[in-house]
């Protein structure tokens, strides 16, 4: 299901034109980005938990050149599905 399909599905569910659904989706994504950009964690009940995690810096080796690189630390978004979602997927 790509973006287009997703929007049409969403619009069908909400009984609104696809364009509106797209707009609302855009605002949702913006807000979501803002919230998580501040380093918050966001839990959606019945779906999962979005969390910003700090990945530590590390040294990696390029296997072909044997070159060592120090990879800087970074913040990454992690998603942890809730048990409900897990169960549904198991079925």
């Amino acid at each position: 299901m790509n973006n287009k399909e997703f929007i049409t599905a969403l619009a069908a569910r909400l009984d609104m034109p696809a364009q509106d659904a797209q707009k609302v989706l855009a605002t949702f994504v913006n807000e979501f980005t803002d919230v998580l950009g501040e380093g918050c964690s966001l839990t959606v009940s019945g779906f999962g938990c979005f969390e910003v995690k700090k990945k530590l810096e590390r040294i990696v080796v390029n296997p072909t050149t044997k070159q060592r690189m120090l990879v800087p630390p970074k913040l990454a978004l992690s998603f942890k599905p809730s048990n409900l979602l897990k169960d549904k997927i198991k079925e």
């Binding site: 998580l36 120090l70 800087p72 990454a76």
Partner: peptide, 15 residues
């Protein structure tokens, strides 16, 4: 957006 605080870091070659 999420990595913005650390965006200025760059990978450094250890040689």
């Amino acid at each position: 957006v999420i990595n913005r605080p650390f965006a200025h870091f760059q990978t450094v070659v250890v040689s």
